[in-house]
């Protein structure tokens, strides 16, 4: 996980490891659990951007639902190389 330089990405990953899958709104609500990691993750826009970058890496899948995007951790970020 150390290779994820971007703290917002680490923030989203840490939250998804607690609650998987989770909506953008749920991720936003859980930021307080990781105050240091999530300090820069100020808006849902940061969550969406971090989530999209995890989708590109194949670590997370994104689905659209009536409550917005649902982000699901599909591979262990620790093994991602």
């Amino acid at each position: 996980m150390g290779e994820h330089k971007d703290r917002n990405i680490e923030c989203v990953l840490a939250i998804l490891q607690k609650k998987n899958p989770a909506s953008t709104k749920e991720i936003m609500a859980m930021r307080d659990l990781f105050p240091k990691l999530c300090a820069g993750c100020a808006s849902g826009g940061d969550v969406v951007l971090a989530g999209k970058s995890l989708v590109e890496k194949g670590i997370v899948e994104r689905k659209w639902s009536s409550i917005g995007f649902i982000w699901e951790l599909v591979s262990d970020p620790g093994y991602e190389k």
């Binding site: 953008t24 808006s43 826009g45 659209w64």
Partner: peptide
Amino acid sequence: AEINHNDIAEYFNDM
């Protein structure tokens, strides 16, 4: 407001 506003912008951007 069950949905985050950023999801809405992203919906229109991408979906």
